[in-house]
Design a protein around this nucleic acid. Structure first.
Lengths: 264, 264
DNA sequence: ACAATTATGTTCTATTTCGAAAATATTTTT
DNA sequence: AAAAATATTTTCGAAATAGAACATAATTGT
């Protein structure tokens, strides 16, 4: 049962190839041949074997990561409505000044916000999403603080009591959260109880709360109550929300930012 | 100064290509052509532009991540003595039973240990290294707990007072640490004060302590005192240590595991 | 509506990569 | 030391990708 990849009796070079691929995402046959001082043909034999075992994926000219190893469900969800999420993210990022302090919650949309914030200067970011932390840690002017707790393999999100306690230590300018569903009366809903607990902690400890959500969430349903539209500062989405939501926003004086389409 | 990648007026498809590449590490021309329902030629034009701007790197057959964007210093250090580190890591992993609880500290060697532990079953791992957490979270049977605190952009390690407090909440079977230098009298040294504080907290809260280190660390120098060889349970390295160290190990009854060369 | 501009598709040739097979080098076994 | 097994290089025709040039469609500005 302890069938490690090492048991697969790969030679030294093949193991190094696997590592190159995992570090760089892709490695070209010709380059590897030079790097290992062997002929491209030898490299091809190596990588063909690796492919038979499904360790890496073959491309014309080299090898890349076998994406089936990764979390397919999550990666698929990530690409869903990607363009819309990016538009929303850009809008959110535009409202956040340099040197601000920010909570960023778990989520595919909030991850895009992190990407859009990469060029900001001197941000202080606290997050419970490993992906967000990794994305923003590439900017040396950005102080990234990761909240401690249990890491879900599903999406590399951190949740649990320890996480909530950790978040309560801070008070920041902006809290950026996502949501799974918004009912017509303005109720915010999600699927995961633990995730909701963390989102609530973020809301309690942020001066302004930005909710980033794409149009597919309006009128949808979910089981756990997160809160209500009246608790947030501004709603960011990609399309005009339905009339009921608009009324609700106006009633509670919540700003609305609709991200316009890219015109290229 | 706010020169975002978006300012580079790329079209929608080009932005999506960049995202595909960042998510998958590599994207093939032919596949993208199908995915976007355009001809390969159009994709080539797109990616050639992206390359001119240095956003991605061109390969025969597709595009991959431009590695110059990443943390070069760290990635270079990572490849240094990689084969040795992997051998050491395999040895460490062999000593850790399924379902054990483990602390894994920051470090390039400890990261290899994490990789070697991917196939273990039901581990409980607490770490302050985002890379370790990401690597092990791909195994659903592994409960990964990330320690909260400030993320260093240099190597995605988490340190600071909050991190130490977090670690003190636990008591585990095995603590796996690295080190920058081992003096001849058995003194363990490192370069970073914050990193040392965390390593000490890990040692205090582990029943057995495994030190993983390659031969380049023997007789080297560093500024911050981490502890002494007598405090650890076992030393894992790739070559027989010098005589002084051997004496020291024997005197304090510390086990020694020398990882043998792969014989392929 | 028209012209200008831009984006995409087509066709064709040059270049690159691939893989099979045979030759050579290296390691292991007896 | 010889034989067997294994790994690597060499060579070459087949297959895939690249890029240039031109044709066509879509978009924009006037």
């Amino acid at each position: 049962m302890a069938s490690t990849k090492s048991d697969l009796n790969l030679n030294k070079r093949q193991k190094q190839i696997v590592d190159l691929v995992q570090q760089q995402g892709f490695a070209a046959v010709e380059e590897m041949a030079q790097h290992f001082s062997v002929t491209p043909q030898t490299i091809r034999r190596d990588i063909n074997e690796l492919c038979e075992h499904g360790v890496v994926r073959r491309f014309h000219g080299g090898v890349g990561i076998n994406s089936s190893v990764e979390n397919v469900a999550y990666e698929t969800r990530k690409v869903l409505l990607l363009a819309e999420k990016q538009r929303i993210a850009r809008e959110v990022a535009a409202q956040i000044p340099n040197r601000a302090s920010v909570f960023i919650d778990i989520g595919t949309t909030t991850e895009e916000v992190a990407r859009a914030l990469r060029q900001h200067e001197g941000l202080r970011v606290i997050t419970n999403d490993l992906n967000v932390a990794t994305i923003l840690s590439s900017n040396p002017t950005c102080e990234v603080i990761i909240a401690g707790g249990v890491v879900r393999s599903r999406d590399r999100g951190v949740t649990g009591e320890a996480t909530i306690d950790f978040i309560r230590q801070f008070k920041v300018d902006f809290g950026i959260i996502g949501v799974s569903a918004i009912e017509e009366d303005g109720t915010l809903l999600d699927f995961d109880y633990h995730e909701v607990r963390v989102a609530q902690a973020i809301m309690e400890n942020s001066r302004k709360i930005f909710l980033a959500t794409d149009h597919s969430k309006f009128g949808r349903n979910a089981v756990v109550r997160l809160g209500h539209l009246s608790q947030i500062t501004a709603l960011f989405c990609d399309k005009q929300p339905p009339q009921e939501i608009l009324n609700c926003l106006q009633e509670h004086n919540v700003a609305l930012h609709v991200a316009k389409h890219a015109h290229s």
